[in-house]
Design a protein around this nucleic acid. Structure first.
Length: 287
DNA sequence: CCCACGACCTGTGGGC
DNA sequence: TGCCCACAGGTCGTGG
């Protein structure tokens, strides 16, 4: 489900029930997600208190009162649901509504307060691990990551340097987490349309001025999507059960054959496969 | 280093 | 109704 706005929405939804709370019970209902879980995953987490829930790129980071950080990536179809106990909340006698998708409920955390947080992931492209906090930045998942797109480190000069000499289009390069960390297929298509920039233009040939205008469009579309609670496609819902609604504001994504929404443009959204992924764009105004 | 492409895994929706 | 194919928000590894 998740690009940066969706992961940020999940973080915001989980933080109130996890931050400052102790994990009374942890269940791993299968030994692996995308990768094997650490053999002592349950043991190391049981009894730990989550001090803070953070996000880096598309990773959720649960800081613990232990030497490790619980690192979680949602892959394509990962999702969390929070459920509160019905009826009397006596310790050990909590009762919860049935799991809506029990077959894919792989990891279940229950806090001392009796809140159950279930991780669902039908495709199992997601993963979790425990990573030493002191050396987290050196871990292969994090060492090469580019800047956060909403940070001051992400600007036109950064893109100019990253795109120098590259023949691939900006669409492909903006998906590279080493260049900028957190974008995915939807928001890259959206940002390029807003900037009226072709996804296919060899990136090394794009002027600094145009890159300088692309950056604020990327920041704007991410900020708007976060404010809208992310985008709901298929099964993504906010952890509180409400739906993100940014998908209604898509200008290109999944809008093949529909009119371009850029002001004054009479173009029609097209879809092409680029580096194995669907690129949605307006061939008329994106040059 | 750069780039294209297949693999990973399961589900869903559209076309016939 | 049922079957088959295309495709899905993300990475990772291989090979040219």
């Amino acid at each position: 489900m998740p690009e940066l706005p969706e992961v940020e929405t999940v973080r915001g939804g989980l933080a109130p029930v996890l931050e400052g709370h102790r994990l009374a019970r942890v269940e791993a209902r299968r030994p692996d997600l995308r990768f094997p879980l650490p053999a002592n995953f349950v043991q190391l987490l049981t009894g730990a208190t989550i001090t803070r829930l953070e996000r880096r790129a598309k990773y959720l980071l649960a800081r613990l009162d232990r030497e490790d950080t619980l690192v979680m990536h949602l892959g394509m179809s990962g999702r969390f649901e929070i459920s509160h106990p019905d009826g009397e909340a006596r310790p050990g006698l909590f009762h919860y509504a049935p799991e809506p998708d029990a077959k894919h409920a792989h990891i279940v955390f229950t806090t001392e307060a009796g809140v159950r947080v279930t991780y669902y992931d039908p495709r199992r492209f997601g993963y979790m691990a425990l990573v030493n906090t002191a050396t987290l930045e050196l871990h292969p998942w994090f060492a090469g990551l580019g800047p956060e797109p909403l940070s001051g480190d992400f600007d036109g000069a950064h893109l100019k340097a990253a795109f120098a000499g590259r023949r691939q289009g900006p669409k492909t390069l903006l998906l590279d987490q080493r260049i900028v960390a957190g974008l995915g297929n939807i928001y890259v298509c959206e940002a390029l349309n807003r900037a009226r920039l072709s996804p296919f233009k060899p990136a090394g040939t794009i002027s600094a001025a145009r890159l300088g205008k692309l950056v604020p469009e990327i920041k704007a579309v991410l900020a708007e999507a976060i404010a809208a609670g992310g985008s709901t496609l298929r099964d993504f819902a906010r952890t509180d059960g409400a739906l993100g609604y940014f998908q209604h504001r898509f200008r290109t994504y999944d809008r093949e054959g529909q009119p371009c929404r850029n002001s004054g443009c009479k173009g029609v959204i097209d879809r092409e496969i680029q580096a194995g992924r669907s690129t949605f764009f307006c061939p008329l105004c994106q040059k």
